[in-house]
Amino acid sequence: MGVEVAVRLPPLPSIRDIISLYKINALRKLSQNFLLDTRIIDRIVKTAGRIEDGYVCEVGPGPGGITRSILKRNPRRVIVIEKDKRFLPSLELLADASQGHMDIILGDVMSYKMDKVFPDDYCKPWDGPPPNIHLIGNLPFNVSTPLIIKWMKSISEKNSAWTYGRTKMTLTFQKEVAERLVAPISSDQRCRLSVMCQNWCKITHKFTIPGTAFLPKPEVDVGVVHFEPLVQPIINLPFEIVEKVVRCIFSFRQKYCVRGIETLFPKKIRVSFAKEMYEIAEVNPQTQPFRLNLEEFRRLCEAYKLICDRDPRLLKYNHRASKMELEEFEDLNNDLLSCNNEELGVLK
């Protein structure tokens, strides 16, 4: 792969001037805030690592501030995904100036699939070094958490941008969310998001951007977080099982973990099956969820799967479902209650 001629952007209006020229206002309903400080922007892009001759997908580029900094670091190509049509003129201006190194995709990153975005010769084996492919984004606050959970699922299934290997991400979040992502055991910030993301990625909170650097100024500061997918997750089970167990356990964050474990099972059997689950996992049922480590969550998820293997209908049980939906689990209750102790003991 030869290195192409470096991109030398011609003189362009500043991002502040672009915003004024095209009369673009940040929309509160989309949680938009524009980052104007070029020193901070360059620092975000530098955090992504070496992107020269690589492919970069920027999500939510807005008027193109971060995009300019990316282009100056000589990637082979930059793909930006933006859903707000108001930014098209400023992005098209930048694409024209990039000498063919930039593509614009008008769409919603929450539904956009990236499995065909990058060339096949950039693929790397999963257990090898990460590919020279990077996801970068100053994310709107209202999509950051659901998007990162969606991407954790893609990492677990090795699809979308992770078809190409362990693609790295450099993203912004509200400072509080950034702290949750990296929160250690027993931290006040540790939650479902902490466990889910730390299971599939090595996560680093690189630095914090003060809210004063944005226009308009948000009510919170912003954290820049770097993700590198792990070769092997701690909990190597289907995403749906891990997500369900972790979500249910953290639904009673300040109570003992047994309370959340019980919600994994229909009412008539939940006490006995919760007991079986934490006994198989060898986890103290009187541990608070945020004090459980990833190894303990692994054992709990594996125990839940073992129990569900006995009757896969349990996988579909949702304690928050409507009364009508829960009625279909009445027969399941009776079937499982009729199991004798010998059958239950096989799992232990």
Score class of each variant (00 low, 15 high):
6 A>Q: 09
14 S>H: 00
8 R>M: 13
30 L>W: 10
12 L>H: 05
13 P>G: 06
11 P>D: 07
24 I>K: 00
14 S>T: 12
26 A>I: 01
13 P>I: 12
12 L>A: 05
29 K>P: 02
6 A>D: 14
26 A>K: 01
13 P>L: 11
28 R>I: 03
3 V>S: 11
6 A>M: 06
19 I>H: 01
10 P>N: 05
1 M>E: 10
22 Y>M: 00
13 P>V: 09
24 I>A: 02
13 P>Y: 07
16 R>H: 04
30 L>M: 07
28 R>S: 14
18 I>K: 15
4 E>Q: 11
2 G>Y: 14
7 V>S: 02
30 L>T: 01
8 R>E: 13
28 R>F: 08
27 L>I: 02
2 G>E: 13
13 P>T: 04
15 I>C: 05
29 K>A: 07
6 A>K: 13
2 G>M: 12
13 P>S: 07
19 I>Y: 00
22 Y>L: 00
20 S>H: 15
10 P>D: 06
7 V>Y: 02
5 V>R: 13
3 V>K: 03
22 Y>A: 00
9 L>A: 05
27 L>T: 03
4 E>S: 10
30 L>K: 04
6 A>W: 06
17 D>N: 14
26 A>Q: 02
19 I>W: 00
23 K>H: 14
29 K>Y: 11
15 I>T: 09
3 V>L: 05
9 L>N: 03
3 V>D: 10
24 I>L: 12
26 A>R: 01
8 R>F: 11
